[in-house]
Amino acid sequence: MSGSGAGLVVDSIVRVFSGQTAVDHVSFEVKPGELVALVGASGSGKTTTLRIVAGYEQADTGRVLYDGQDITRLGPSKRDFGMVFQHYALFPHMSVAENVAFGLEARGVSRSERMQRASAALDRVGLGGKGARMVQQLSGGEQQRVALARAAVIEPRLLLLDEPLSNLDPTLRQSTRDELRTTLKESKAPALFVTHDQDDAFAIADRIVLLSRGRVLQDGSPEDLYDRPATRDVAMFIGHATLIPARRTGDFATVSIAGAMHRVVLSSFTGIADGETGAVVLRPEAVEIARDDGGDQWSATVIARRFAGAQFVYRLRLDADIVFDVASRERIETGAAVAVRVTRPVPMVP
């Protein structure tokens, strides 16, 4: 990767903690105006990567560049990035406005100007008029917005967010996602945020960098990762998928279920040559319970049923000991034999 790109370039960084490789040759970019999510399970190295970008950790090897300038060894206070910490790290002895104004104070901005800018920043996150409160008087969601305002008011070159939604309760989380994307887009600064939740990443990010065990599994748009997963691990992590062994034949894959051969249409098959084996990625929305004789049908047994409001979710067992979920509005008893069919092209992974 060259260092000439505008925005953030992370170039093959490595970080080893007492023998454990936390970050293993990770490379990606954040282009001007882009919202990028670092997604992975705990222990995937996503937070360490973010802390290396912020400057709180040092990479053992590799480089971090911004607008072509090597900032690998630059201290965190010199990078001009704004960071939102997982637990917000709001200063408990300062008022909301003083918290937001702190970065301006450090930059020598006069008191009257910084209070004015802090109050404008609070307006933008919908906390106008709450500047005089102490931070503990605010709710979790409000504290999150103060942290965002504090990071954004210094007009950073890049916003960094560590699990920005993980401390919010589920209902608040839904609405905050959209707000967060709007605020980040309005701030014009590119943003890099870490999350373990693919729904957060889908809702907010323009691009997702999926990490596992310190390595980048796939780097692409949310649609790319969902529709065209590059590996089994990506397919397993993104969406609710069941993998079924298959062999590719042209644009089709052949799967064998209890001795019977079935054909499914493929939507993508990156890196699999014709005739090679791999696995097809079956997601609930690609399968339906058949009510007529049409198409290629697979027989299955209902082993569990869960009521999900608008519909039921059935857990089905294919004869070949493969279990997957299907949604249906119909009521079927547990233990019943049903026929299912694949209704749309599915991705295949090596």
Binding site: Y56, P76, S77, F81
Partner: peptide, 11 residues
């Protein structure tokens, strides 16, 4: 992270 936040904000 409180100290880190202060450093990150340029203190």
């Amino acid at each position: 992270s409180l100290d880190e936040a202060a450093i990150g904000l340029g203190a």
